[in-house]
């Protein structure tokens, strides 16, 4: 890697890190696992003056149950999420998603906090986080605040985080009695999602859909919840026909984007298809 010159900082506390970010809001860039930032540094597409490495700040990597929710430290890696016995039992949607993110090397380095803060529109993690209605904790020089996930993603590579704020924790509910699935359309196993769909739902007697939440990534400038699909299925019996009809609204209200890997039209078609398939898989 031959990046442009930058200064490397390794703070040992969040206070130190956020103070530095506050002093250099334009020039400083936070790095956690480096799986998104390092490739662009290598290509000199990003030219930060300072790299603030969170790796020496202790206490940011954990998965624990706290009062009916599960708290995940921002520096927790995909591999740790994939392997977590607690998550597998109480919130399997996250391990289901982590298992299909990129490859072993990326999963060993990449962090959930890094992925969400980076807000790549094709990243996998935003989809389940939306479907889970997670709550995100950010710390800045003035203290901490909690952000509901529906207010977190602002657009392509844009979030609710201020330049001097660091995402520190993700809280997700315990999914007792719920079913979930993450399905991803990609040309190759390790690729970004052409479309990724996370589903969690509570299925009642007679296969009725008592509660459903869906997160879709890869289609628009940010991950989103296809509200029309969720509404259409609520209280309905989960029959193939009903699922398919509901999934037809998968891109309602969003503007699908295209690139060389898939046009907007193709992604929209895939979204309808994969929303239906993900619901069927969760069922």
């Amino acid at each position: 890697m031959i990046p442009p010159k930058f200064e490397y900082l390794a703070p040992t506390s969040l206070a130190e890190a956020t103070a530095f970010l506050a002093a250099h809001p334009e020039e400083a860039k936070v790095v956690a696992g480096g799986q998104s930032l390092v490739p662009v540094l290598k290509l000199r597409l990003a030219r930060p003056g300072y790299l603030v490495d969170l790796g020496r700040i202790s206490g940011l990597s954990y998965i624990r149950e706290e009062a009916g929710t599960i708290a995940i430290g921002a520096l927790t890696t995909y591999a740790e999420i994939k392997e977590s016995a607690l998550l597998r039992e109480k919130c399997p949607l996250l391990p289901q998603t982590a298992a299909v993110i990129a490859d072993v090397q990326v999963r060993n380095r990449g962090t959930i906090g890094g992925s969400l803060s980076h807000a790549d529109p094709s990243a996998d993690m935003p989809a389940p986080i939306l479907a889970l209605g997670a709550e995100l904790k950010a710390v800045g020089p003035k203290g901490e605040r909690r952000i509901a996930v529906e207010n977190f993603f602002h657009g392509m590579f844009a979030t609710a985080l201020a330049p001097d704020e660091i995402l520190t924790e993700i809280r997700v509910p315990v999914l007792t009695g719920q079913r979930s699935a993450y399905l991803k359309a990609a040309r190759r196993a390790t690729d970004f999602a052409l479309v990724g769909v996370a589903v969690r739902m509570r299925v009642g007697k007679n296969e009725t859909c008592d509660e459903i939440a869906i997160g879709v990534t890869g289609v628009a400038d940010k991950a989103y919840r296809p509200a029309a699909v969720e509404r259409a299925l609520a209280g309905k019996r989960l029959e193939p026909k009903a699922i398919e009809q509901a999934a037809a609204a998968a891109v309602q209200g969003v503007e699908p984007l295209g690139n060389i890997h898939g046009s907007a039209e193709y992604r929209a078609n895939l979204a309808r298809l994969y929303v239906a398939r993900a619901i069927a898989a969760a069922k």
């Binding site: 040309r187 190759r188 196993a189 390790t190 690729d191 970004f192």
Partner: peptide
Amino acid sequence: VDYMKPLAVG
């Protein structure tokens, strides 16, 4: 990322 080589998986 854009010039896609085949992987062993698949």
